[in-house]
Nucleic acid binder design. Structure first.
Lengths: 194, 194
DNA sequence: GTCTATAGAAGGATAGAC
DNA sequence: GTCTATCCTTCTATAGAC
């Protein structure tokens, strides 16, 4: 309940990005949602929307990574942990009436061609996710190169499924993507175990 | 060279959506790029940006479907056709310096929560793609339900890979997604052939 | 049906009082 | 470091001459 002005701005911006994207989220709307006077935004983020956006992307990327890590840690096996990530994503989509999707993906597609600092922030987040997932798979006994492929495939699958699920307002794509990812993982595990 | 005013508007809008998204593409920029006076836009699309956007989404969706169909028709086998779709996507990304991505995905993420007519247009396009791909796989001897799963998985993989590839400016994710998709297909074919 | 001019709202950003 | 008022640009959309 003691969220600072700066944290309220970051939280509000993250939510706006999730729903409306970077271009669609206005600074005036953000300060209104955060219940913060307009000038405070430029006090905390002198670089304006770009600096705020980069902060929010890196922060959201870390928060999602923490959530996924927690879900996986709470799972009995690596196979189950992958399934739980996808079913968790499907549950969030349904619970938010398909409004809350991944803010990184939306912003990444919007700004990749036009805003280099933000593009770099999204690339940094994705690379961190890939490294973290790769480590998990290596720990499960999968060879490094194969583990990185699985990590990239899993992240691509979940992001692609987000797009389809939001557009069609159905979890079918997320369910299919989850089955696909766990299938790939099982095949890789089977291979690594001989 | 006899592109009508309306077609020039549609082409320019499609390119702007690919690079800047729906919100980021201004109508003034569009008419300037299309070399068309502003009033003509509202003559041809009285519904303004939403009507224009819906037209462009459906038109782009059909064009992409035609391209993919042509690539697949030119391939020797269903396995090769899937690989060619992903390698073709990777080639386009590289050739355009990672600027030209799928306009449907970008718009879908941006407007899913805020613009119902456009959300419906993106959902319609994705469903058509799924149906077309499903038919291909069924023709290759895969059972209907499994074929639909493969189709959804393939589209999610290519869209997710687009996000990662554009953000990181690398085709690695697209290459991995292609290998993943062809792997799934081969497993399904092997299963269906007994 | 082509084109210009402009309205009216919203965008990002800044200045300066407190 | 908080907050208000305002600037300038850009946005979508409309009106109306030709």
């Amino acid at each position: 309940m003691t969220a600072s002005t700066k944290e309220r701005i970051l939280d509000a911006t993250a939510e706006m990005f999730r729903r409306y994207g970077y271009t669609g989220a206005g600074l005036k709307q953000i300060v209104q949602k955060a219940n913060v006077p307009f000038g405070s935004l430029y006090h905390h983020f002198p670089g304006g929307k770009v600096e705020l956006g980069a902060h929010v992307i890196r922060r959201s990327g870390q928060m999602y990574q923490d959530i996924v890590t927690a879900v996986m840690d709470a799972s009995a096996s690596i196979e189950e942990s992958v399934r739980n990530v996808f079913s968790g994503a499907a549950a969030v989509l349904q619970a938010s009436d398909y409004e809350d999707a991944c803010p990184i993906a939306t912003v990444a597609l919007e700004v990749a061609s036009t805003n280099e600092p933000l593009r770099e922030a999204t690339a940094e987040v994705f690379e961190k996710w890939i490294v973290a997932a790769t480590e998990r798979f290596v720990s499960a006994g999968i060879a490094e190169a194969k583990a990185r492929e699985l990590a990239i495939g899993m992240i691509a699958a979940v992001e692609g499924a987000f797009i389809l699920a939001r557009a069609t307002r159905s979890t079918e794509a997320m369910d299919v993507a989850g089955a696909m990812a766990s299938g790939m993982l099982e095949a890789a595990l089977h291979e690594s175990r001989g």
